[in-house]
Amino acid sequence: MTTDAATRNRLKDMPLPPAPFLSSVMQIEPQWIDYNGHLNMAYYNVMMDRAIDEMWLQLGIGPGYMKERHGSTFTAECHVRYLREIHLGNPVQVSVYLLAADEKRIHTFEELRHATEGWISATSENMTVHIDMNARKVAPFPPDIRARIQAVVDSHAAVPQPEGTGRKVAMPSK
Rank of each mutant, 00 (worst) to 15 (best):
V46K: 03
D144I: 05
N134M: 15
T108P: 00
K168P: 09
P15W: 06
E85H: 05
S155A: 09
A42Q: 11
L22N: 12
E54F: 08
D154S: 08
H156W: 07
M55Q: 07
D34K: 02
Y35A: 06
V159A: 01
N45P: 03
N36I: 15
Y97A: 04
P17R: 00
G118Y: 04
H130F: 11
L39W: 03
I145P: 07
T7H: 12
Q150M: 07
T2H: 13
F109Q: 01
E77C: 07
Q93D: 14
T75N: 07
H107D: 12
L98Q: 14
A51M: 14
E85D: 03
D13Y: 12
H87G: 14
N36S: 02
M127A: 04
S95K: 08
A139I: 01
E85A: 08
L112G: 02
V46D: 07
A147D: 13
S121Q: 06
E111P: 03
Q27L: 08
Y65N: 00
T116K: 14
I106R: 10
T108Q: 01
H70T: 06
M1K: 11
I106T: 15
V80A: 03
V129R: 03
L99C: 00
A42M: 08
E29T: 01
K12C: 08
Y97M: 02
T128E: 15
V46F: 06
G64K: 01
V92R: 10
G166T: 10
A6K: 11
N9F: 13
T73R: 00
K168T: 07
A157G: 00
M1R: 14
S23Y: 05
T3A: 15
S95W: 03
T165I: 04
P160A: 08
L22T: 08
P18G: 13
T116A: 11
A157H: 14
L112V: 01
V138K: 13
M41H: 09
H70D: 10
S24M: 05
L98Y: 13
P140S: 09
P20F: 08
A122T: 05
F109L: 10
G166D: 13
K12L: 06
V153N: 12
A170H: 04
H156S: 11
V129N: 01
R50E: 12
V46M: 00
I106L: 08
T2C: 06
L83E: 12
L99Q: 04
K67T: 12
A157F: 03
H70F: 09
Q93P: 07
P172A: 01
A6V: 03
